[in-house]
């Protein structure tokens, strides 16, 4: 009898299944972010929804598929922006962790991001500033700028040379001084959806990731 009830329950549960079916299309089903957890872990996180593991074990499934509907559907934003923003927290956290390990304590940080969409670039820069502040760093709101002549030259160089030269110019023009570091976050190829970063410190450019 228990098996029959379990089977009927499983059948009824299909109506809540996040996969495509009678009630939702494949495109709609893709807008769920899911993860599979053990029943014990799922119960710990969602005690009202997932029952506790019985002390004598269970028959059948002992894990749970936890899904949440995305706030913005895939496709609402441009693909690269979506991919970057979707993992912005993790990417920026990793990059700021690496950045802080390159500079001495009490360094003042300047941050800018180089990304084709200005709105997304701004979000990246703000996330990096917040990430640095959370790590106890002193962060300036000011963005270091170079003159028009420098920009004209830099724009013609490939990224490998442009950032290095820009860093030297920042220092030569006293835009940055000793004890100040510039963290730049960027993509270097239009086909990428991952962020790279480099640090300009004492006139020397260093790629982080």
């Amino acid at each position: 009898m228990r098996r029959l009830i379990a089977g009927l329950w499983l059948f009824a549960a299909c109506t809540k299944d996040p996969s495509a079916g009678f009630v939702q299309t494949k495109a709609e089903a893709r807008n769920y972010d899911c993860q599979r957890l053990s029943q014990a872990e799922a119960h710990e996180r969602y005690p009202g929804v997932v029952p506790e593991v019985p002390p004598r074990g269970t028959y059948g499934s002992t894990d749970a598929l936890i899904c949440s509907r995305r706030v913005l559907d895939w496709g609402d934003r441009e693909g690269r922006d979506e991919a970057i923003l979707n993992s912005l927290g993790e990417q920026v956290s990793e990059l700021t962790r690496l950045a802080t390990s390159t500079a001495p304590e009490h360094t003042t940080w300047y941050v800018d991001s180089f990304y084709p969409q200005p709105q997304v670039a701004q979000k990246i820069a703000i996330a990096a500033r917040v990430g640095l502040v959370e790590r106890g760093q002193k962060v300036s709101d000011r963005v270091p700028l170079l003159g028009g002549g420098d920009i004209a030259v830099l724009a013609r160089l490939p990224p490998g040379q442009a950032y290095d030269l820009a860093c030297r110019r920042y220092f030569a023009e006293s835009v940055l001084a000793r004890g100040e570091a510039f963290l730049a976050l960027m993509i270097v190829d239009a086909r990428e959806s991952q962020l790279h970063a480099g640090v300009c410190l004492d006139g020397a450019w260093r790629w982080l990731l």
Binding site: D112, F114, Y115, P116, P118, L145, L146, I151, L154, A155, R156, L157, P158, P159, A162, Y163, A166, A184, M186, I187, V188, D189, A190, R191
Partner: peptide, 16 residues
């Protein structure tokens, strides 16, 4: 050789 795209006052982001 790869092409280059100019972005405001920033160092360039290469085009595909």
């Amino acid at each position: 050789p790869k092409g280059k795209a100019k972005k405001g006052s920033a160092p360039p982001v290469t085009a595909p």
